[in-house]
């Protein structure tokens, strides 16, 4: 696929491989958010999506020789960690009150 100098074959790892892997991980994360009913698993799938995006940022940063991708990863990582902490605190508070984290039990607002 890449026809750069040196006639790389398709199997030699390049930017495309990292992007494909990142896309696959991202869609698995989306699958987790859609299919699972446990609030904590949904939070974990969101973390998986953020990680997949981090991977593509770093891959681009390496192949464009620009550090901005890694800086973005730095920020995304921090924000995701803060979000996970707050999300878990909410989950703990909900569990203390309702003894349930299954989102099928919280459909009171459903029209």
């Amino acid at each position: 696929m890449q026809d750069q100098k040196g006639a790389h074959t398709m199997l030699h790892v390049g930017l495309n491989h990292y992007l494909v892997l990142s896309g696959v991980l991202f869609s698995i994360g989306v699958l987790g958010v859609l299919l699972r009913k446990n609030a904590l698993i949904i939070l974990m799938s969101i973390e998986l999506m953020l990680n997949a995006v981090n991977l593509s940022f770093v891959a681009f940063s390496k192949y464009a020789q620009n550090m901005d991708g890694q800086i973005m990863v730095f920020f995304v990582m921090t924000i995701a960690a803060a979000e996970a902490a707050v999300g878990l605190a909410i989950a703990v508070a909900v569990f203390k009150r309702f003894k349930e984290v299954n989102i099928a039990h919280f459909e009171n607002l459903k029209g």
């Binding site: 992007l19 990142s22 696959v24 991202f26 593509s56 020789q65």
Partner: peptide, 25 residues
């Protein structure tokens, strides 16, 4: 989700060395 995955994988696989003009390599 399969459609989304297909779009992402396709875009990732088709991107060329210069990012179709968007990335300066």
């Amino acid at each position: 989700v399969g459609v989304v995955c297909g779009v992402l994988v396709g875009a990732g696989a088709m991107i060329t060395g210069d990012g179709m003009g968007f990335i300066k390599v």
